[in-house]
Amino acid sequence: MTIGQTASKTKAALAAAAVLGLPNIASAEAADTYYERAFVVAADARCNLFAPQIGAALHAATAQARGAALRSGAGEAELAAAAARARARAGAVSCADPQLATVRARVDGAFAGWLRTPRMVFPGARRSWIANRVSSTDANWRLQQMSVVGASPVAFGYAGKGDAPGLTAVVSFVGRSRPYAARIVLRDPVRVPRPWLAGDGLAPVSAQASLWATGVSPADQTLLAEGRRAGEAWRFPAAAAAALERLDPRETFAIEFHFRDGSVATAKFEAGDFTAGRAFLAMGML
């Protein structure tokens, strides 16, 4: 390939990134969208193109595009290769390239709307993550996915007061019996490196990792499911977020509630766009 051909391909990629780096995703081009957003993220890391809030919005959109690509049939190896190509292309582009300035201007304009967006729904195959950036003095959900165990609603995500919510599961059990412990159960990437998408979605016990809750307290009324008057809020360590982000967006994880009679109640959740939701929150409160 000649120098002229290389320059031409670089400019074409930059021009495409300026268009495909926008927030909307068409499923038919989800893998291409992921490549272009990964390119802009890599270019930003190298050339410091965007303010932190725009950078957070771009990271959210890139994670969202990756989830959309996986759900549309792209393979993990294919997306890893696309990300590697994007980083290589970004490394070959001059930070002073005028086409890169065009990308910056268009991405700034496209994601400016995200900065003013108070709430966003990140759909999954079966369940959605709902993100909320509205400031409140009351305890509220910043990032939430709903599930159920039996007749009892279970919500999981980031909840709390102020600007430092923690990973929390809120459950309102029917009846008087209450669990004495709770844990997140998910695939152990050391034992099983590839996504587990078979059976009921949960990896077998031999391939599972778990993170136990660090505490429990009565849940604030503002965190309860509609129609519930009481519930418990189980708090989980910050390390659980990194473990969830390592999952494939199509994978299932669960929260187990353990009772003193030896029984276990299990609420299932979808990994989905958890990473994108966290990045959306990183843009700050409104």
Rank of each mutant, 00 (worst) to 15 (best):
I184Q: 06
V121L: 14
T222F: 08
T214L: 02
V192E: 06
A182H: 09
G124N: 03
E232M: 14
R116I: 08
G162M: 00
A241W: 04
Y180V: 15
L202N: 00
V205E: 15
R126D: 13
A125Q: 15
F111Y: 13
D108R: 11
G175K: 05
G215I: 08
V171W: 01
R194S: 15
E245T: 11
P153G: 02
S217T: 14
A125D: 14
G175N: 12
A181S: 14
S135W: 01
V170H: 02
P193A: 12
G109C: 11
L167W: 07
N140A: 09
V185Y: 03
F236D: 04
A239W: 07
G157N: 07
W196E: 04
V103D: 02
G231C: 07
P123K: 04
V205H: 15
P179F: 04
A164L: 13
Q145I: 07
L211H: 07
G201E: 01
A164Q: 09
V121A: 13
G124D: 01
V205A: 15
G175I: 07
R104G: 00
A240M: 09
T137W: 05
G150L: 11
G231N: 04
V148T: 15
G199K: 07
M120I: 12
V149Q: 09
A213T: 06
A241H: 05
W234E: 00
A182G: 10
A209T: 14
A181H: 09
S135H: 10
A233H: 00
G215S: 10
E232N: 13
G199S: 11
G109M: 08
P193D: 07
R142F: 14
G150D: 09
L211T: 11
T168D: 06
V185F: 02
A151C: 08
W114F: 07
Q208N: 14
P179C: 06
A238Q: 06
Y158S: 04
G166S: 09
W212K: 10
A125V: 15
W141L: 00
G227E: 12
R133V: 00
S136P: 05
S152I: 08
A112G: 14
A219I: 03
G175C: 10
D163A: 10
G109H: 06
G175Y: 09
L211E: 03
R116G: 15
G227H: 05
G150P: 11
R133Q: 08
S177G: 11
A238W: 04
G150F: 05
A219D: 05
Q221H: 10
G113K: 10
A207D: 14
A238T: 10
V174P: 01
D163L: 01
R183H: 12
P165N: 05
R235Q: 04
T117Q: 13
V170Y: 06
Y180P: 08
A110P: 02
